[in-house]
Design a protein around this nucleic acid. Structure first.
Length: 142
DNA sequence: GCCAACGTTGGC
DNA sequence: GCCAACGTTGGC
């Protein structure tokens, strides 16, 4: 079981839309970055992730779960690009802002801080615990 | 809207 | 294979 963080601009694809997609989930399309794609290749069914709003909000707003292994991204003909499917699991009681993350010394190595532009990021179990705690989710979903 | 960071492209 | 130019991302 591994943990991840998925970034989305709410204008393009918001947490509300993700929730409306329901238990079936949706393809996480549009990733055109090798590192982000490789992260998706490493995902297993049931892996959990944070859903993060970039540009507007700048906060972790929900918990998602990987519900389909990596497959070709249907929004492009380019065979290099792949995606997983994710589904919304739940809202977080208290969104965790980028500011909160940056202010927490335990999270100074988090990819959200160190690899600002990476849209699909790995999250360590320690970071997962800490962000869940800050979000009012205790115990952290596994 | 600006601009820094950084990933990608393409000429050599 | 290097590296400059360019485009995109995303915080502010």
């Amino acid at each position: 079981m591994a943990f991840w963080l998925f970034k989305s601009e709410p204008d393009a694809w918001s947490w509300n839309k993700q929730k409306e997609a329901g238990a079936k989930g949706t393809e996480w399309t549009g990733v055109r970055n090798y590192l982000a794609r490789n992260n998706m290749r490493a995902m297993q069914i049931g892996d959990k992730g944070f859903f993060y709003h970039s540009n507007e909000g700048l906060e972790v707003v929900g918990i998602v779960e990987v519900c389909a292994l990596v497959h070709h991204d249907s929004t492009t003909d380019d065979p290099r690009w792949e995606c997983v499917d994710i589904r919304a699991v739940r809202d977080v009681p208290k969104p965790v802002t980028l500011k909160d993350v940056k202010a927490n010394p335990k999270l100074e190595k988090m990819a959200l801080v160190t690899s600002m532009r990476l849209s699909v990021q790995p999250v360590t179990p320690e970071e997962w615990e800490e962000v869940c705690r800050m979000a009012g989710l205790v115990p952290a979903p596994q």
